[in-house]
Design a protein around this nucleic acid. Structure first.
Length: 592
RNA sequence: GCCGAUGUAGCUCAGUGGUAGAGCAGCUGUUUCGUAAACAGCAGGUCACCGGUUCAAGUCCGGUCAUCGGCUCCA
């Protein structure tokens, strides 16, 4: 049974109504809009006459409890027509008091059933308490079923999700069948916070931010920088195998290039302020790498025999994200895309797209990510933010879905989630707090080749227009590292761990042997790279060294004391399994 | 950007208008240790910043900045 059909879903929906009833009683003039159940709870968007503060949640909660205890039966009422519905919404109020509900009513197509949910009861003072809401339902049968609930937070939310509309106050809450389940959920939330990449990023020494550098501009620390290198090494090797060629391009470029690409027109408000030189030329900090790669493509005549051309670059870009949306390295203002642009003939598009999907599947497998979904972002017909001809959009969308079908990649089509220049396939994954983020992406682009008048000479000696594929299997190194950190709770798999092995001498007299062991390990190649080893020769107890290396999630600790020097062994401790006992270095290495 | 919240030592946090505190980390000394914190001492602060109220502000009020949750937007 799906969540939408479950009793829990109805319970949460009813909890939203109960909250609306409490709010209506407590705040005269509060206008209700919508209040649906969501993945982990519910919310209700309300237009309050005065700002609603978070500390008022307790008051609302208490009132909800009182109303729940009245054991109000919840009944469904279907009205005959919109006039009757209108009267029921207004219930003696003026139309301007119920603008949102009336708008919702107007949006219901004629002929469709219009239903209301009604809950009412007589309280101890003999007064009738009631609440009627325009609603499709379904609901539970009685408000007394709503026992385990909690209001969580207050947020602003635009009416109908449109910034041009008024911002309403959204109150988030959650409800469960039992108090235990509620407690468990709240406990899990606390646990999830410990996995937050911002917390682990600091504890593990991966990256930092400084107010003296700027919002959303991460500083990569040695351990984090190592992680980046391991990831880029891996991907680079995969790409070389698949015929990609590396390129490197600057961080800034002349604005004219970006005017031609269309970025300035569509992207201006997301770009850092422009720079002007003494000759009055304007430069921009690049928000995307594509125009530079296009310049490289265009620098010479291209034959159909040269195609596909695949230019790859770990390109650092800067985007001026709104202050409220910067989130650690999940959403930074400076980040590095594992970018590549493929210039292909229309006939090669399908095969190349499949090749990219195959690369992505390889990457996901290596990273150990399973819990993701694929989304095909298509054009929202109602929006004017897109560039390019409809025919090309249709062909590109077809190419994407065909490739996915052939690669047996399950996907959902999501209108409105295309890039401004073309449709795309995105890989979506959730972070520790359950928020979904886009990681890898492949985008088909007929638009930029046209804007830049890209050509190749075909078999017929005539010029033809190539198609471009933009793709980034990680998406960005920053976001991918954030997501991996949260997925693994900081305990990266061995091949990825910034420090793979810590050598722990028990006493000072073992330091020399520890360093020798470390040197030997560093000369050992694992997964095409030298092993990453650290010696912990601080004058601390063994227990303390173990504790701290355990906290740093180092996969293996090699402990070296008198017994080992004598026997020619090391004490091996596994991050998960604990003490594995003494063994020779050879047998340790062969088990890696 | 907008709505709400938070900002005290490197980190986690206490401090209820009257002389800024703890644990961990750091430093110094002692300890040389076999699988998750040895012991002792020392040092560490413009209580985010600016302004106001008050005899007196970490504490009350206003503004700014940063961070956190959400909306919109995005890799």
């Amino acid at each position: 049974m799906s969540y939408e059909q479950s009793h829990l879903y109805r319970l949460r929906h009813s909890a939203a109504h109960l909250m609306a009833q409490a709010v209506s009683e407590l705040y005269a003039g509060a206008k209700l809009s919508i209040g649906p159940p969501i993945e982990n709870g519910f919310y209700y968007d309300i237009d309050f006459p005065e700002p609603f503060k978070e500390d008022e949640l307790v008051k609302v909660e208490n009132r909800m409890r009182e109303l729940a205890n009245l054991k109000q039966p919840i009944t469904r009422r279907v009205v005959a027509n919109k006039e009757e519905a209108r009267a029921l919404i207004l219930n003696g109020h003026k139309p301007e008091d119920e603008p949102y509900k009336l708008e919702l009513l107007d949006a219901i197509p004629d002929g469709e059933e219009v239903s209301f949910y009604d809950q009412r009861a007589i309280d101890k003072q003999g007064k009738e308490r009631s609440f009627v809401d325009l609603c499709r339902g379904p609901h539970v049968e009685n408000t007394s079923e709503i026992k385990a609930f909690k209001l969580l937070s207050v947020a602003g939310a635009y009416w109908r999700g449109d910034v041009k509309n008024k911002q309403l106050t959204r109150i988030y809450g959650t409800a469960f069948e039992t108090k235990d389940e509620l407690e468990q959920y709240l406990h899990n939330l606390e646990e999830a916070k410990k996995r937050d990449h911002r917390v682990l990023g600091r504890e593990l020494g991966l990256f930092m931010f400084s107010p003296r550098v700027g919002t959303g501009l991460p500083l990569w620390l040695p351990k984090g920088a190592t992680l980046r290198h391991v990831m880029t090494d891996f991907l680079q090797k995969e790409q070389v195998k698949r015929g990609y060629e590396p390129v490197v391009t600057p961080h800034i470029g002349n604005i004219k290039l970006y005017e031609k690409s269309g970025h300035i027109q569509t992207y201006r408000d997301k770009m850092f302020p422009f720079m002007e030189d003494e000759e009055k030329e304007t430069y921009i900090l690049k928000p995307m790498n594509c125009p530079f790669h296009i310049e490289i493509y265009q620098a010479q005549m291209r034959s159909y025999r040269d195609l596909p051309v695949r230019y790859a670059e770990f390109g650092t870009v800067h985007r001026y994200e709104q202050s409220g949306e910067v989130t650690g390295i999940l959403r930074a203002r400076g980040f590095t895309q594992d970018d590549a642009h493929l210039f292909v003939t229309p006939g090669q598009l399908q095969e190349e797209f499949i090749g990219v999907v195959d690369l992505m599947q390889t990457v996901l497998k290596k990273l150990g990510l399973k819990d993701f979904r694929a989304r095909v972002g298509t054009k929202d017909p109602g929006s004017d933010k897109y560039v390019g001809h409809d025919d090309n959009w249709t062909a590109a969308t077809q190419a994407i879905t065909d490739a996915c079908d052939q690669m047996q990649m399950d996907y959902e089509v999501s209108p409105g989630d295309a890039a401004f220049y073309g449709p795309k396939l995105d890989l979506m994954i959730k972070d520790a707090l359950g928020r979904e983020w886009q990681m890898g992406t492949v985008q088909v682009d007929y638009n930029l080749p046209e804007r830049f008048e890209l050509e190749y000479v075909g078999e017929d000696s005539k010029p033809h227009r190539p198609v471009m594929i933009h793709r980034a299997p990680f998406g960005s190194l920053e976001r991918m590292i954030a997501l991996l950190t949260e997925q693994f709770a900081g305990a990266f798999p061995f091949w990825l761990a910034p420090t793979q092995i810590a050598v722990l001498p028990i006493a000072d007299r073992h330091n020399e042997a520890a360093i020798a062991l470390s040197d030997r390990l560093k000369d050992t190649t694992y997964d095409t790279r030298a092993l990453r080893v650290e010696v912990d020769d601080r004058r601390e107890s063994l227990n303390k060294k173990i504790r701290e290396n355990q906290r740093m999630k180092v996969p293996y600790m090699l402990i070296l004391g008198d017994k080992d020097l004598e026997a020619g062994t090391v004490g091996v401790r596994d991050r998960e399994k604990g003490d594995l006992g003494a063994m020779t270095v050879e047998s340790f290495l062969s088990n890696l």
